[in-house]
């Protein structure tokens, strides 16, 4: 059962960050509440003050500027799933958003909240990683820009410093001819495994590929070694290469046994789904 909470509603990022600094550990940023309220209910997060950032206009925009797509922290999954700009600019993200949980969570939950909690069983972070994005973090000393791959530190841990909040995600345009795709494996509402690929092929050979895996392991991450190994390979050979690399992937991802499946199963499926995502990204590009 929830105890009573104090709600603050700042209208600028600076005010929000000031409130965070003031209340310290007792305060939490609140946007959709999809992640936060669950943790509060289970007693995993003790918050007395909620800083509702939904009144900050800037956090609600989706904007294309000089080839970079900027998505405010309070944009909901539902909005992302349906936005034509997002679909065109970052197909993997749009796909991940459309598969996330259920329509109630998608209508309520926000991209910023999802990334800032860094729950390992999550979709958007994995899908975003193949787009080389950065996050803008706002704090007392102004704003700073951190690549998403450096923002995710460990399970539930990010590069956010005390008094900072996630303001915006910057997604650069994909190189010409490259496309992205996302594949999700799930038994429950949260994914068992998420795989994203962005690829560019010419004459049946992979010219460039980006791969990311989430849910298996403590955080979503890029598979840079494997990306290097499949570069130049024929699509039909990628399957074999991924299979050969399974052991190395296991060392990198460190899957664990849990309700969603055994470590062996997750690793096997990672291999299968990397190939599926690669094929989908190429298919979309062709």
């Amino acid at each position: 059962m929830l105890s009573s909470l104090k709600l603050l509603q700042p209208s600028t990022v600076a005010e929000a960050s000031q409130a965070l600094a003031e209340h310290g550990e007792n305060a939490r940023i609140y946007a959709g509440g999809a992640e936060l309220l669950l943790l509060v209910r289970h007693g995993l997060v003790a918050a007395e003050v909620l800083i509702d950032i939904k009144k900050i206009d800037r956090l609600h925009r989706i904007q294309l500027q000089d080839g970079t797509l900027r998505v405010g922290a309070c944009v909901t999954h539902h909005a992302l799933e349906n936005d034509p700009l997002v679909r065109e600019h970052a197909p993997a993200l749009a796909s991940a958003e459309s598969q996330l949980a259920n329509v109630r969570v998608r209508s309520q939950g926000t991209l910023g909240g999802n990334l800032a909690f860094n729950d390992p069983h999550s979709d958007p972070g994995t899908a975003l990683l193949v787009h080389n994005p950065a996050v803008i973090l706002g704090g007392a000393g102004g704003e700073r820009r951190v690549p998403l791959s450096e923002f995710f530190i460990d399970m539930y841990a990010t590069a956010l410093r005390p008094g900072e909040l996630l303001v915006e995600v910057e997604i650069p345009r994909l190189p010409v001819g490259m496309n992205s795709a996302y594949r999700r494996l799930h038994r429950y509402q949260r994914p068992t495994l998420g795989v994203a690929a962005a690829a560019r092929a010419a004459g049946g050979a992979i010219e460039e590929a980006r791969l990311a895996v989430g849910c298996v392991g403590p955080k979503a991450q890029r598979l840079t070694d494997l990306e290097g190994k499949i570069k130049g390979a024929k699509l039909s050979d990628a399957r074999r290469i991924v299979k050969e690399e399974r052991k190395r992937l296991g060392n990198l991802l460190q899957p664990v046994d849990d309700l969603m499946g055994s470590a062996e199963y997750k690793l096997y499926m990672t291999g299968v789904m990397i190939c599926e995502a690669l094929e989908a990204a190429n298919g979309a590009a062709a």
């Binding site: 038994r187 499946g261 055994s262 062996e264 199963y265 096997y268």
Partner: peptide, 13 residues
């Protein structure tokens, strides 16, 4: 009957 058990029965994992 889960996908994982089917894969195990097939000897894939």
């Amino acid at each position: 009957i889960t996908p994982e058990k089917i894969l195990r029965a097939m000897g894939k994992i």
